[in-house]
């Protein structure tokens, strides 16, 4: 930053150090204020695992889909961009599969905005993209726990907009194998055929 001689004096050095310490402290504060969840993804410790959330038909547990492949997406219905794009791609992927394969795959859409998304809204929103896609919701605490399990990053962010707040979020599809274990994640922007290939790869009996 400073290339002149004075920058090397002990005084300058100590003030630089102080500034650095303060910057790091404020980054910490900002992160805490943001309420960013699920840093697990960045550190590569996303493990996946079971959860139970709510739907219009009552509680839905990941466990009840053992023997099927489950594909998860986390987002919110207020989202006009990444969520409809990804869910459309997922719908396209499901429709590209053989009917036999498609019945072996359960798509789930999980809200990160429980304050605005009730189970009814989630159900209708999900069904629009694929008829068997279920929309799930839970309390903020439960959703934060599930998001953390899967390494989903999200943060509620107040914005100067009629939308009042948005939910910043990472945008991966998570493929859970027939054994209930997280098998792989598919990044945002993957075309439907690539998503379909990832789903078929997780099906034990599919013609690959």
């Amino acid at each position: 930053m400073h290339t002149d001689q004075r920058a090397r004096t002990p005084f300058r050095l100590s003030s630089l150090l102080l500034v650095s310490v303060l910057s790091i402290a404020s980054i910490g504060l900002v992160a805490a204020h943001d309420g960013t969840h699920g840093l697990a993804h960045e550190t590569g410790v996303a493990k996946g695992g079971d959860f139970t959330l709510d739907s219009t038909a009552g509680p839905v547990a990941l466990k009840q889909f053992r023997g099927k492949v489950v594909v998860l997406y986390f987002g919110y219905t207020f989202c006009p961009d990444a969520c409809p794009t990804t869910l459309s791609a997922l719908g396209g992927a499901m429709r590209s599969l053989t009917p036999a394969d498609a019945t072996q795959i359960q798509p789930l859409f999980i809200t990160l905005d429980p304050a605005r998304d009730d189970v009814k809204r989630m159900a209708e929103y999900s069904r629009f993209f694929y008829p068997t896609m279920l929309g799930l919701r839970g309390s903020e605490e439960r959703l934060a726990a599930v998001a953390k399990q899967y390494g989903v990053l999200f943060a509620k962010q107040k914005v100067d907009s009629a939308a009042n707040y948005v939910v910043d979020h990472s945008s991966f599809l998570y493929v859970v194998g027939t054994d209930g274990k997280l098998s792989r994640s598919v990044p945002y922007g993957a075309p439907p055929l690539e998503i379909a290939a990832a789903l078929r790869a997780a099906l034990p009996h599919s013609a690959k």
């Binding site: 989202c79 948005v166 945008s171 945002y188």
Partner: peptide, 8 residues
């Protein structure tokens, strides 16, 4: 930071 952020 690995997230999609919509902003006005």
């Amino acid at each position: 930071g690995g997230m999609k952020k919509m902003r006005p």
